[in-house]
Amino acid sequence: MVQKYKFLTEVELEFMTQLWELGQGTVRDLLDTLSPDRPLAYTSGATIMRILEQKEFVTSTKVGKTFIYHPVLTKDAYQTRSIKNLSEKLFDNTPASLVARLVNDSDLSPEALDAIRTLIDKRLKDDNS
């Protein structure tokens, strides 16, 4: 059976981004790092973290009355998962089309294109060796 991966909603991604940066943290820690123009109740933050735990993105340990959350999935792993999903859904499962779209983007600077070329060359060299 094909495993169905879970993805993050917008607000969950905000929380995960903060948690990836902090390494671990409580709901209060995460709320403090959010933008001040985004007031969020403590209970809402706690609910979001509980959902992330059910989605198996984080685990928690109880210290006294507080839960400390740790990311289970790394940011890189989630990026890979998201790109794969994007490639499957929007680019007919052909990663070349995805890269072509990215490279053809006129906003991409020559430096960024060079970096992409270096990455591809490195990957090809690694595969050959």
């Binding site: 909603t9 917008e10 969020l40 809402s44 979001i48 959902i51």
Partner: peptide
Amino acid sequence: PSAMITRN
């Protein structure tokens, strides 16, 4: 909807 959690 889970997105509703932020709209108290």
